[in-house]
Design a protein around this nucleic acid. Structure first.
Length: 441
DNA sequence: AAGCCGTCCAACCGCCATCGG
DNA sequence: TCCGATGGCGGTTGGACGGCT
């Protein structure tokens, strides 16, 4: 069990790939697509197992991969997604075009973990290390609790005012085996995140809480999470002056796929579009990718670029599935990559789900969430190490841009953000919901 | 110069989910 | 329904490399 039959065959090479092997694999897939991976090595003339070929393709040869170091924005996004998704690297990677799960995993283990610890944040819990011991103890307790006796312990926790734990627990809970999950209360409100799809429902819960924010005081203040989860910061920005964006704002702005692809493995759909935004203290950098009316209709294919600390400007031209790193990537080569992968058909159930969420997005309570802008606390991730970006580029968002011409982003973003601030308000919240839904169902 | 150590990252391994016969 | 094949994911390993002593 575990090993594929092909791996038992003799004479299969292991270890690092030679340039010749790379060329063989690349040529084969370019011409024929991968099809059944187990047959690829044979047809491509490689002494490798199909699994190895697949891995090599996905992690290295795939033409739409980004090269080079991660930008600060990408790191921030990874941190935030990790706070929600945990070690679901593939799902995190789905929100970072051109990055592989392996790459992100390596970055996390080698770099981000260290950085977070240096900032006094436990990378596992995303909580301040000072509370780590308590949290760990609590987690141990939770692990030994049955669903029936969890409540009392939860109340004990509430007595020490650790509402912030809820999301952590909700997320962690979602990873538990079905029979080990327990209900999680959000704050002291009566709204309960069930033991299933807790992350998803947490977001629903948050939305519901937001709806109350403008009128009455609730115990489910989004600010309960401020200081522990920086996406809270985004929340306020969503409804606020659009003065800062970061992190989860950058998740898939085409939530159709996150919703539809309940199997997260489909998130690598070619149409998946991600936006990256700046660090928190910077002006908005996103062209609104869609209006609220187009959330589920038109697939918008924005192009982005990521200014990075090492000045490796990377532009992603989604419309051609091409990626250029300083103009390095040939979009024609990209065409075969994603083009091999069929789009996921939309099921009728999904359509219903979409309609439901479309209604949700247009519901009044979101409109009333503007008061969120008054909540202004910073993320623990927003340390002084996070440098504000000073310049942005965006490829022309033409229909099928192979030229990937670039224009200076600051010339446009101010006007664009004003024009579409309202749509962003919905869009970004939907993006987070989409993440929660798409990744946890 | 040589050895040690830490970091990075490509690749492997084991497991699980899904699919099709 | 069962079972083997396959795809995919996350954890782990080990080699390459650079810095330090």
């Amino acid at each position: 069990m575990g090993r594929h039959s092909c791996c038992y065959k003799q004479k299969l090479r292991k270890g690092l790939w030679s340039p010749e092997e790379d060329e063989k694999l690349l040529n084969y897939i370019t011409k024929h697509g991968h099809g059944c991976w187990s047959s690829v090595p044979k047809l491509a003339g490689l002494q490798r197992c199909g699994k190895s070929c697949r891995l090599r393709w996905i992690n290295y040869l795939r033409p739409d991969l980004k090269r080079g170091p991660f930008s600060q924005q990408e790191e921030n996004l990874i941190i935030e997604l990790h706070a929600v998704l945990g070690n679901r690297w593939s799902q995190i990677a789905a929100q970072l075009p051109g990055r592989t799960d392996n790459e992100i995993k390596n970055l996390w283990n080698s770099c981000i973990k260290k950085k977070l610890r240096q900032r006094g944040i436990d990378p596992n819990t995303h909580k301040p290390i000072s509370a780590e011991t308590e949290q760990n103890d609590h987690s141990k307790e939770i692990s030994q609790l049955s669903p029936t006796n969890y409540k009392s312990n939860e109340q004990q926790k509430a007595s020490v005012g650790s509402n912030e734990l809820n999301l952590v627990e909700a997320v962690a809970n979602s990873k538990q085996p079905e029979n080990h999950r327990y209900p999680v209360e959000v704050s002291s409100s009566s709204q309960v995140i069930s033991n299933r799809n807790s992350t998803q429902e947490f977001f629903i819960d948050r939305a519901a809480c937001s709806s109350h924010e403008g009128s009455t005081t609730t115990n489910c203040r989004p600010s309960d999470f401020v200081g522990y989860f920086s996406f809270q910061h985004h929340h306020q920005s969503n409804f606020g002056s659009s003065s800062d964006t970061m992190g989860l704002n950058a998740v898939n702005p085409n939530p159709t796929f996150s919703f539809l692809n309940q199997n997260s493995r489909s998130n690598s759909d070619p149409q998946m579009v991600s936006e990256f935004s700046t660090s928190m203290s910077t002006p908005p950098t996103l062209l609104p990718s869609m209006s609220s009316g187009s959330l589920f209709g038109t697939r918008v294919k924005p192009s982005i670029s990521l200014p990075s600390d090492n000045s490796s400007t990377v532009s992603w031209d989604q419309s051609s599935a091409g990626y250029s790193n300083n103009g390095g990537f040939d979009s024609t080569a990209a065409a075969f990559s994603w083009g091999l992968m069929p789009e996921v058909p939309v099921k009728s159930d999904d359509v219903e789900e979409i309609n439901k969420w479309s209604e949700y997005l247009h519901s009044p309570f979101l409109m009333g969430a503007n008061t969120m802008q008054n909540i202004n606390q910073s993320s623990p991730y927003n340390s002084t190490e996070i440098k504000p970006e000073t310049q942005y580029f965006m490829t022309n968002n033409g229909s099928s841009s192979t030229s990937a011409a670039t224009t200076s982003w600051p010339h446009h973003h101010q006007q664009a953000s004003n024009l579409q601030a309202s749509s962003e308000m919905y869009t970004k919240d939907l993006q987070r919901l989409a993440v929660a839904f798409g990744q946890t169902l």
